[in-house]
Design a protein around this nucleic acid. Structure first.
Length: 594
RNA sequence: GGAGCUGUGGUGUAGCGGUUAACAUGCCGGCCUGUCACGCCGGAGAUCGCGGGUUCGAUUCCCGUCAGCUCCGCCA
């Protein structure tokens, strides 16, 4: 049905008889002469139907998006008819045979790049949206990235192993998607949030190096970078040092960027301890595309007569600042908005200071003498015309609020810098305080190994214990996260104790894993990278929906199929499931396509 | 759960307390043998997301609701 792709026709084929197939991109009917741009996955080729020489009457019926096959002779155009904007613009196909495989409704939007229609329409007719070259390009790029990573992991001895989709709900983490069991009414499978436990079992099984392009499901609210189902490049390796794992991931990233974007990455990627990342950038996923770091002003603020600062410092807080270059021109109103923003982010307030040619302008200037202000300005690197923002609060609050202000004001878009800035964030705290309680929760997951040197603190000062967990960060986006796992029963039990898990509870929740670990678990570690986010970074898109063939809406519905939808009474009866009032009746869907 | 933005022919937009609801493009028909965003002529196509309220009168103002998007919460 086809001997060549449209996009591969060139002058070397002039005179050859070829068969093409594809969709009608555009028709230009000149009366006695019809031009058709034929589109397939590879590109466009111009077809010519000449009255008298071609199947002309049939060609007159052609409309956009008709599916056709043609046979004809490749002809060089006369030079004045070259189309430099078309890859195949020096040739055309003089058609001798035309077959209309299928007709088409007029599409609801143009099948072309640079489209501006409502995204819901694109999602509703996703199969048309994907016909657009820029969308097919995204899918192709994703495919190439996946293929390269598979090849690379294979080279390093990793085995691709599938793990179950129907698994068991585990207590921690995100909300599970549940699947009712027909054979065991009242019991449910859960779709995996990640293959975490299985990949550790595979290490016990001696797989040594495992990877999987794993579908993961989390029933949480969506964002531009979050879908309820998404793909992780999930990997785990035994007897594998952190250095080796970092090198593996870095090499993989370097290959992707080099081969897909022709960008050479600087290696090794910088590493920042969590503490340092927060201190300097106010974020555990700092965006290093633009300069400007937070500074600690606690010692200087202490010398002022500003009571609020002093109070915060006395109660163990810190005073931190960030200099917004050129921010001195912000209006009073804009400054007020910044204060509101800081409050929404959790700060009690925000102090601003503008450095002028002579002295300082600030509502709190009177509490500082000139020399002190200059010292502060110097530490923050403030030039005349710059704005210094200061937050006094608990360490974490001061850092995060200023970090958010840094992102908002110093944003990379303003800087026009878009090179990839990878880094590793390491040494995360093992625990986070349980909100409102005295206890602790796992920061990563409860099998994350503590940093060896912090082990003595495990029972005494758990909040200070750091873990062997690491995040891969690119331009302010968390691309992946992993850790070394605990493989020692004693350490695991000590950790459960800190988490307030009794032996019985631990047994109940993770018994199968703990049991497996009794049969000789090797030291192992792993990481999971978000494929959708990774590809989005490669394409430069704003939303991961752009690189997913059939994504869900912000309301977690599929506009193509209308999922989720009610099911028949019979299906529910078979599962022994009753739907309470407020649920939908059979046949209803939250977003039924028209 | 909360906040914000958006919703007008197929599509993208304009508009306004009283309009024949405008423009572009697409679509349909006609003409056209070198176009490539072809051109020219003509035509069809909109209960202004839905419901309620204010008003003599609502696409326009108000309230609610639905849908899409963005953010907060949430996402070990």
């Amino acid at each position: 049905m086809r001997t060549h792709w449209c996009g591969e026709l060139d002058r070397s084929l002039v005179g050859r008889e070829v068969t093409l197939a594809g969709w009608v991109q555009r028709r230009r009917d000149h009366g006695g002469l019809i031009f058709i741009d034929l589109r397939d996955r590879s590109g466009l080729a111009q077809l010519v139907f000449d009255k008298g020489k071609s199947p002309f009457e049939l060609a007159e019926e052609l409309r956009n998006e008709y599916v056709i096959g043609v046979r004809g002779r490749v002809a060089e155009r006369s030079p004045e008819n070259y189309n430099p904007r078309l890859a195949t613009g020096e040739i055309e196909l003089a058609v001798s045979e035309l077959k209309i495989y299928n007709r088409s409704y007029n599409p609801p939007f143009y099948i072309e790049d640079g489209l501006s229609v409502e995204e819901s329409l694109r999602l509703r007719y996703r199969y048309l949206d994907l016909r657009r070259p820029e969308m097919m390009h995204r899918l192709r790029l994703r495919h190439r990235a996946v293929k390269m990573m598979r090849d690379y992991l294979h080279e390093d001895g990793f085995l691709e192993i599938e793990t179950p989709m129907l698994t068991r709900s585990t207590p921690e983490g995100a909300r599970d998607y549940l699947v009712p069991s027909r054979l065991h009414p009242g019991s449910f499978y859960a779709l995996p949030q990640s293959p975490q436990l299985f990949k550790q079992l595979l290490m016990v099984a001696g797989a040594e190096r495992y990877y999987q392009f794993a579908r993961c499901f989390r029933d949480e609210d969506l964002r531009a970078d979050r879908q309820p189902e998404f793909t992780q490049i999930d990997l785990e390796a035994s007897f594998y040092s952190q250095e080796r794992l970092f090198d593996l991931v870095e090499t993989m990233m370097a290959r992707l960027w080099e081969e897909l974007l022709e960008i050479k990455l600087e290696r090794p990627f910088p590493r920042l301890a969590y503490r340092e990342a927060m201190d300097r950038f106010g974020s555990d996923k700092p965006d290093l595309r633009f300069p400007g770091e937070l500074v600690d002003l606690t010692d200087l603020a202490e010398k002022s007569s500003f009571k609020i600062f002093q109070g915060v410092i006395k109660s163990g807080g810190v005073v931190k600042g960030w200099c917004h270059a050129g921010g001195g021109r912000l209006s009073r109103r804009e400054l007020e908005e910044l204060i509101d923003f800081a409050r929404r982010e959790g700060a009690k307030g925000l102090v601003w200071m503008v450095r002028e040619e002579e002295g300082w302008r600030s509502p709190v200037a009177k509490f500082f003498d000139q020399g002190l202000l200059n010292e502060i300005g110097e530490r923050a690197g403030a030039q005349p015309g710059d704005l210094l923002l200061v937050v006094a609060d608990r360490w974490l609050v001061s850092c995060t609020v200023l970090g958010q202000l840094r992102l908002r004001l110093g944003g990379p878009r303003e800087q026009g810098e878009n090179r990839p800035h990878f880094l590793w964030v390491i040494d995360f705290p093992l625990f986070e305080p349980e909100p409102g309680e005295k206890g602790y929760l796992s920061n990563h997951h409860p099998f994350t190994a503590p940093l060896e040197e912090d082990m003595p603190l495990l029972e005494t000062r758990p909040a200070e214990v750091r873990s062997q967990a690491y995040d891969l960060v690119l331009n302010g986006v968390e691309l992946g996260s992993g850790s070394a796992r605990i493989y020692d029963r004693d350490i695991q039990q000590r950790l459960f104790k800190v988490l307030g898990l009794s032996d019985r509870e631990a047994e109940e929740k993770f018994g199968f894993l703990l049991e497996a670990f009794e049969y000789g678990a090797p030291p192992h570690r792993g990481i999971a990278l978000g494929l959708d986010r990774l590809v989005t970074m490669l394409t430069g898109d704003e939303s991961i929906r752009q690189v997913i063939a059939f994504p869900k809406t912000a309301g977690a519905t599929c506009l193509v199929t209308g999922a989720p939808a009610a099911v028949s009474r019979e299906q529910l009866t078979e599962l022994k499931i009753g739907v309470k009032a407020g649920g939908r009746k059979s046949g209803q869907s939250p977003s039924k396509p028209k």
